[in-house]
């Protein structure tokens, strides 16, 4: 029996999306085999072996000096398909610096590294599913996928949720970014509304006076209230 509903058509990318060239030799050619959900799929990693530090959610405080760039707050709720907050979910983020450069050996884009910015953070959702990060707005960067290819500004998100099958890795974008319609990675998602849900919203109520602009990004993981989490239902 499958306790987690399947994918709504168009709401997720396919593995092969030729405009994103790296998929051409990495997307499997065979269709995946549908699995029943056993105890192996319904359980999943439980966070807790690697405690979150008090500044892990604040990417502007990882060094003695603040990083370059526009300070922003990125916050939202992690929800299930019934709109219930998912508590105690690990949220990991990573991003380029304000100049569009990652602190990674393979990123050779000739933009400056910022000695005061690592670009990685972690948080755990509270009892109602809320998370909050403080960071700087990342820059766009070129990526050689095609002529004059530039990634829109984005923040990578990684979440576990409650089961092996609720794993989600995605990217958050910024409203009004002119690169969005040109980006084969975001455009790999067939459904327009599903793409739009990866674009954060400027939120004046999250914005802090004299301090930082606020962007809201809510995330929905697989799973429903009806999911019977007791032994007899398996």
């Amino acid at each position: 029996m499958r306790e987690y509903p399947g994918t709504r058509p168009g709401s997720q990318p396919e593995y092969l999306h030729e405009a994103y060239r790296a998929t051409i030799r990495r997307a499997p050619a065979q269709p995946p085999i549908r699995l029943p959900h056993t105890r192996s799929e319904l359980t999943g990693p439980v966070y807790g072996h690697n405690p979150i530090g008090p500044a892990d959610h604040d990417l502007t405080r990882h060094f003695a000096e603040p990083p370059q760039g526009q300070r922003i707050i990125v916050a939202g709720r992690v929800l299930d398909e019934d709109g219930r907050g998912v508590p105690n979910a690990l949220v990991e983020v990573w991003q380029a610096n304000a100049a569009g450069r990652y602190r990674h050996a393979v990123d050779t884009h000739p933009a400056p590294l910022d000695p005061n910015f690592l670009g990685a953070g972690r948080a755990v959702t509270d009892e109602t599913g809320n998370y909050r990060f403080l960071t700087i707005r990342p820059g766009a960067y070129p990526w050689r996928n095609h002529h004059n290819a530039w990634r829109p500004a984005h923040i990578h998100f990684s979440l576990f949720g409650t089961a092996f099958v609720t794993r989600l890795v995605t990217q958050m974008y910024f409203p009004g970014d002119p690169l969005i319609p040109l980006d084969p990675i975001l455009q790999s998602i067939p459904d327009q509304d599903a793409r739009q849900r990866l674009v954060s919203q400027f939120d004046v109520s999250l914005t802090e006076p004299e301090w930082a602009l606020g962007y809201r990004f809510d995330i929905v993981l697989r799973g429903r209230r009806a999911t019977p989490f007791e032994e007899g239902a398996k």
């Binding site: 709401s11 997720q12 929800l79 983020v93 990652y102 393979v106 990578h156 989600l168 995605t170 929905v220």
Partner: peptide, 23 residues
């Protein structure tokens, strides 16, 4: 209420300082 799960995106090439820095 029935929400649609957030779309997946690639982990990209630059994840290691965030996800796998801890051997």
């Amino acid at each position: 209420m029935s929400l649609i799960p957030t779309a997946s995106q690639t982990v990209g090439p630059f994840f290691n300082f965030a996800l796998t820095a801890n051997p």
